[in-house]
């Protein structure tokens, strides 16, 4: 049932021309070079250190690894990370 629902949403996004992240509730990431990453539609901050940021998403987690991390902005729907980004990884378990 849940899977079916997700597929319906994806189809709707495709036909309606509405951005998929809005319809599906999945994160939208903007990476500028290697030094600035903004993530929209995240759920919460799980862990933060100089080298790692773990975010909870609607489904699964997002792990970002790098160096000299600074959380530039943190809002309810958006988070901006500064520093050297080496790795962005989805973890679904």
């Amino acid at each position: 049932m849940k899977k079916w629902n997700a597929q319906l949403k994806r189809w709707f996004a495709e036909v309606s021309n509405i951005p998929e992240d809005v319809v599906l509730g999945v994160p939208r990431m903007t990476l500028i070079g290697q030094f600035r990453l903004s993530i929209e539609n995240y759920k919460s901050v799980l862990a933060f250190s100089n080298t790692e940021l773990r975010l909870a998403l609607n489904e699964g987690e997002l792990h970002i690894a790098g160096e000299n991390f600074v959380l530039e902005t943190i809002l309810e729907k958006e988070i901006v990370l500064q520093g050297r980004v080496n790795d962005v990884r989805f973890v679904n378990e």
């Binding site: 100089n50 600074v70 959380l71 530039e72 902005t73 943190i74 309810e76």
Partner: peptide
């Protein structure tokens, strides 16, 4: 703080 909408910025560890 995010839940309570208290503004925070320039967070470092």
């Amino acid at each position: 703080c995010v839940r309570e909408r208290i503004k925070m910025w320039q967070i470092t560890r």
